[in-house]
């Protein structure tokens, strides 16, 4: 009896595992984060939204050796964001000044309309932040997830989340990506 139960559990679990794997593959295949920001409908929509935001200048701080920071910046510029590019030697001071919780850190740090935008945050999330104007200190994509804007690597996309944070260090999920 117990052996039969184990077999059933195994079968069910295997099916779930397979279903999960297929779902992930589908996501990876249908949702590539393209380096090309000019030629797709979603980006056109974001560009339209960016154009309608008044005074949304991204003040970006990045280190001179950070290639993916530059790739992210180029994508934001291509979508129509006004930017101010600050290439600085040490990122530690700016990160400390923003009050960013350390575990949310990424490579580059951006300030816009009183908010902190940390790391490889997709443009759509910045548009939403500036439109909804929530009572938070900022949003962050911690680390450097492969497949996030500026972090493309072949077809690989690993799931990641844009998180909110406040001055007390509380965080919530703002938007999930790649899941």
């Amino acid at each position: 009896m117990s052996i039969l139960f184990r077999s059933l559990t195994f079968t069910l679990r295997r099916t779930l595992v397979l279903a999960g794997a297929i779902a992930l593959l589908t996501v990876a295949c249908t949702n590539p984060q393209s380096l090309d920001t000019s030629n797709n409908q979603a980006n056109q929509e974001i560009a339209t939204q960016v154009a309608s935001l008044p005074n949304a200048e991204l003040v970006v701080y990045r280190s001179p050796t950070c290639g993916c920071c530059g790739a992210w910046l180029a994508q934001m510029q291509a979508l129509g964001f006004q930017t101010q590019d600050n290439v600085i030697e040490s990122m530690d001071a700016i990160k400390a000044k923003t009050g960013l919780p350390q575990e949310l850190a990424s490579c580059h740090t951006t300030l816009v309309n009183g908010y902190v935008v940390e790391g490889h945050v997709p443009a759509a999330d910045i548009v939403r932040l500036l439109t909804e104007k929530p009572d938070i200190a900022g949003i962050a994509v911690p680390g450097m997830p492969i497949g996030s804007p500026g972090m493309e690597s072949g077809d690989t996309v690993e799931p990641y989340a844009t998180l909110t944070f406040d001055q007390a260090g509380n965080t919530t999920v703002f938007q999930e990506h790649g899941v």
Binding site: V17, G20, A21, P145, I146, V157, E158
Partner: peptide, 16 residues
């Protein structure tokens, strides 16, 4: 995680 093959089953990402 129950399914280790899920790409979000890990404490750190591919980059690290």
């Amino acid at each position: 995680a129950e399914n280790w093959q899920a790409t979000n089953a890990w404490e750190t990402g591919l980059m690290a």
